[in-house]
Design a protein around this nucleic acid. Structure first.
Lengths: 158, 158
DNA sequence: GTCAAATGGTTGAACGCTCAATGAGAATGT
DNA sequence: ACATTCTCATTGAGCGTTCAACCATTTGAC
């Protein structure tokens, strides 16, 4: 280990980090400013809206959204306070809970979606050629695949 | 506005978001676990270490690192508590301050660097072909350029 | 020279995320 | 039956970021 980065690798890495910061900041700010919800809440609402009966088990929702149980639990509590989500006991497993998207939650999502989509277009998609979008897709899936299910200290991880 | 995303655009966007989350989590976790510093602190130390006399004005440092004065001010306060950075009045402008990298700060950076570089390699660079690295570089610089200096509600931003 | 505006930077509160600890129910073994 | 262990989920403390308010100094206009 401890092999340094070449100039070209460093350029790539720094550009990557900078891109992430700009894009994610743009997306998050727009959602907060126009719809008063962080991108993570939006993702939760989207996942629920696409699920059968607009509900999912907490752990499945956590996986689908980012993998942290605790974060999801906190987030659902806050969404519950806003009336956008509610919790339902799981009848077949006494430990389990469903998060359910309420009508108000769906309305909030539908209110937020157009502005968000527009922001994704203007910040990212419109700036790239079709070929670049394809390149980005390939790189992103490669990396996501590479890192998915990476536990701390696993071979691919660090 | 309010034009929906095509399937292909949606695939690209979702892959992008997933990639970011995985990569950034991997990088940040490694630094915290092995060197007890979040990636944002690491970036600050790097910027200072590359500056003349290992010092920069607060606002220049903020620009170079991410653009938020307030975040930087808080971060420098915490780095100061660790003895990694110190503040110096700017002689030519009574309002200004320099953040200065101390010897301890440089040592902390040098201790953290090899593990961090290794993590960048293993999480990202090693998983991509040379061509993909080049593609990623081009996309990243295109987007960073596109979004740099984007104020809220500016034409390219949202 | 004086006053208003702009600039450089800090502060505190509110919020979201992480981590470790916890609890309750289900599965497993004997 | 019973104890062990595993799984699903919640909780609270600690930390970092953001936002708005603020202070001090400098700049510019008159």
């Amino acid at each position: 280990m401890a092999q340094w980065l070449t100039d070209s690798e460093q350029r790539t890495w720094r550009a990557f980090v900078e891109m992430n910061r700009y894009v994610m900041t743009a997306i998050d700010s727009q959602l907060i400013r126009d719809s008063d919800m962080p991108a993570t809440y939006y993702a939760i609402l989207v996942a629920l809206s696409e699920a059968p009966d607009r509900r999912m088990r907490m752990s499945a929702l956590a996986d689908s959204v980012d993998g942290s149980q605790s974060r999801l639990s906190h987030a659902v509590s806050r969404l519950e306070q806003r009336g956008w989500v509610s919790r339902q006991r799981c009848p077949s497993d006494g430990r389990g809970w469903f998060a359910v998207l309420t009508d108000e939650g769906l309305a909030a999502l539908e209110g937020a979606a157009p502005g968000h989509v527009d922001c994704v277009r203007r910040s990212v998609l419109d700036a790239l050629t079709e070929q670049q979008q394809e390149d980005l897709y390939k790189v992103a899936t490669t990396l996501a695949e590479h890192l998915r299910g990476t536990q701390p200290d696993s071979p691919a991880g660090c």
